[in-house]
Each structure stands twice: as C-alpha cells, then as structure tokens.
C-alpha cells in the first residue's frame, strides 16, 4: 500500500473518531480495540464521556446563574443540545458558549422562559468583561477640567469591559442567582444592568430605565448633552448628576473626548 493510500485510511479513521465522539448513535471506528484485540465500545466511551462532560461543565462555569435557575435536571439536556448545535471552535475554552443566548432564543423546550435569553447575554458580558483588555480608566475629575460651555459636547470611549443591557425581566436579581439562589424573584419586574471592570473585579450594577438609556447613548458615542436629553424624554426627573457620577466613577469609559474647536 502506498503512503497516499495509508493517509486516506488514516483520514477516514480520525474523521470517524471525531464524529462518533459527539454522536453516541454512531458505531465506534474500526480498528479501535482493547488488549484482547476485540472492539472496545466502553473504552471508546471514555473519550465520549470526557468530551461531553467537560463541555457541560464548561458551560455551567460560564453560565452559573442560568444553571442555578434551570437546575442540573434541566441544564444538562439543554447543554447537550447546545453542544450538538454549537461545538467549540477554539481551544480557548472561554470562547465556548458564546452563542448560548442565541441558542436559547430558539430552543423550544425553554420558550416559556424567555428571561433566560437576557440572563445568558448578561452572563456572557460578565465573562467578556473578566477577560477584557486592560484599557485605561478615565480620571473621575476629568470632566471638571472641560470648559463649561463644552461640557455637553464631550463624548466618551467605552471601556472594553463595559456593557449596558436593558431588560423587561428582573435581570439584576436573576444575575445574582450565581451567589444566592434562595431569594424569590418577581418575574414581572423590569431591571437593567451596567457592567464595568474598574480593576480586576467585574462590577454589575442595577440601573433604572432612564440611566440605562443614558449609558446606551454614551456607549454609542453620542454627546453628554444628547444622552441626558434622551434620558429626560423617558423620565423628566432624570437625575443627570447621579448618572454622570456613575459614568465617571464606575470605570466604564476609557477616554473623554472634547469637541474639536
């Protein structure tokens, strides 16, 4: 047999091996045996188990609040379906699970729990913030040095770790399930969250609807004046000073940009 033919045999073996890992219905590749030379499905099963169990555990680690809400009984089959639909594409396991929220949107067994989609997005944002680049953090005093007539025209550069998320569900309470699963959650509430990482710790804040809109505008690159105006349209009593305080002190922005004159 030529080297080329051997390579073809080898290729089909490894192709079969990898397919059989994620599909327990497939027979194990030929030529895989135990010490007696006989086919060894249970031995091959160790690899199947290693792969699937390690990926389920990785998904649990990435989505501890979703896991807490669903419990082991519901999380494991959900994870198995996710793994089949979106197996990892990178050896960086922190990337694995990046489509979980998208998957949950159309996963019919959980369609009566749409809040899980928002929760999965928030947990993903937490992980992204944890690993985000060490951008600069703006000096909380920086706005004070801007000439008063230009203050409303400044814009900000969002920090790599920062994330704002509006939700019609009690997102902050749901997120907190990772640390405390005993609290009752009123699913009719609406809560929004702001995530930032001023140092190494990721901070998750509960923010009101008008604050949420303010940060959405700021992160989109709108001026301070436009962001305040947008928030006031939602709530006339919008506390701009408080929102600006969070903006300057939470570490959610890496740069203050003054208008060019």
């Amino acid at each position: 047999m030529s080297a080329d033919n051997l390579a073809v045999v080898d290729q089909s073996l490894n192709q079969h091996f990898s397919r059989a890992l994620l599909d327990p219905e497939l027979s194990i590749p030929t030529g895989i045996v135990g010490p007696d030379g006989k086919s060894a499905p249970k031995r091959f099963g160790v690899y199947r188990n290693n792969v699937v169990v390690s990926l389920i555990e990785a998904l649990k680690d990435a989505y501890p609040s979703v896991f807490s809400v669903l419990g082991e009984k519901n999380f494991v089959p959900t994870a198995r379906n996710y793994i089949a639909a979106y197996p990892p594409k990178s050896p960086m396991m922190q990337e694995f699970g990046d489509k979980f929220a998208h998957f949950l949107e159309s996963f019919s067994p959980l369609k009566t729990s749409p809040f899980l989609v928002d929760l999965a997005k928030a947990e993903r944002a937490w992980l992204v913030a944890y690993h985000a680049a060490d951008d600069d953090i703006i000096d909380p005093q920086s706005l004070g040095s801007v000439p008063p007539d230009q203050v409303m025209d400044v814009t900000f550069k969002k920090h790599a770790a920062a994330w704002i998320q509006a939700s019609q569900f009690p997102l902050f309470a749901l997120y907190c399930r990772r640390d405390d699963d005993s609290a009752d959650i009123d699913l009719t509430q609406s809560q929004n969250i702001l995530i930032s990482r001023p140092g190494t710790d990721v901070i998750v804040r509960h923010v009101g609807a008008e604050d949420c809109l303010f940060f959405e505008q700021i992160f989109a690159g709108d001026t301070l004046g436009i962001a305040i105006g947008a928030a006031m349209e939602v709530e006339e009593e919008f506390d701009a000073a408080n929102a600006i305080g969070i903006l300057l002190q939470s570490g959610c922005c890496s740069m203050l940009l003054q208008p060019e004159i």
Partner: peptide
Amino acid sequence: THDDVFYND
C-alpha cells in the same frame, strides 16, 4: 481539533 471543532480532550 478536527476540521474546525475543538473536542476539549
């Protein structure tokens, strides 16, 4: 890794 899938084992 085979093709573009990483099997984490």
